Amino acid sequence: MQLIFPVAGGGRPRVRHVPDVKSMAEHAMLESAKWRQVSWRKGTKGRLTVRLAAMRVRIADGAP
């Protein structure tokens, strides 16, 4: 993914760059993620484990 500076056909020119790919909802992105089960220590009721997925995301709102 890259940020591009699109040329406007008319009106005011853009001030900020925009991504060259469409945005995607997080639940749709996490469906295709590679999940991994990680345990970090033994608790009183057994191993403490969690399922994790690491993904790179870009915030779609707010200041650049």
Results as ranks from 00 to 15, higher is better:
Arg56Trp: 12
Pro13Trp: 05
Gly9Gln: 10
Met24Gln: 10
Arg16Phe: 14
Pro13Gln: 04
Asp61Trp: 10
Ala8Asn: 10
Asp61His: 12
Arg12Pro: 07
Gln2Ser: 05
Thr49Ala: 13
Pro19Ile: 01
Val50Gln: 12
Glu26Leu: 09
His27Ser: 12
Val38Lys: 08
Arg12Trp: 14
Glu31Lys: 15
Ser32Gly: 08
Trp35Arg: 03
Arg56Asn: 11
Met29Trp: 06
Ala54Phe: 13
Val57His: 07
Gly11Met: 02
Arg47Leu: 14
Val7Gly: 01
Asp20Leu: 05
Ala33Thr: 05
Ser23Arg: 07
Val38Gly: 07
Ala33Gln: 04
Lys45Ala: 13
Ala28Ile: 13
Gln37Ile: 12
Pro13Arg: 03
Met24Asn: 09
Val38Ala: 07
Met55Tyr: 14
Arg47Val: 14
Arg47Ile: 12
Thr44Arg: 13
Ala54Trp: 12
Pro13Ala: 00
Leu52Pro: 03
Ala54Lys: 08
Glu26Arg: 09
Pro19Asn: 00
Ser39Trp: 06
Lys42Ser: 13
His17Glu: 13
Gly9Ser: 11
Ser39Glu: 10
His27Thr: 12
Gly62Ser: 01
Gly46Lys: 06
Ala60Lys: 09
Thr49Pro: 02
Ala54Tyr: 13
Ala25Asp: 01
Arg14Gly: 08
Thr49Tyr: 05
Gly43Ser: 06
Leu3Ser: 06
Gln2Pro: 00
Pro64Lys: 04
Pro13Asp: 02
Gly10Cys: 00
Thr44Val: 15
Gln2Tyr: 06
His17Pro: 05
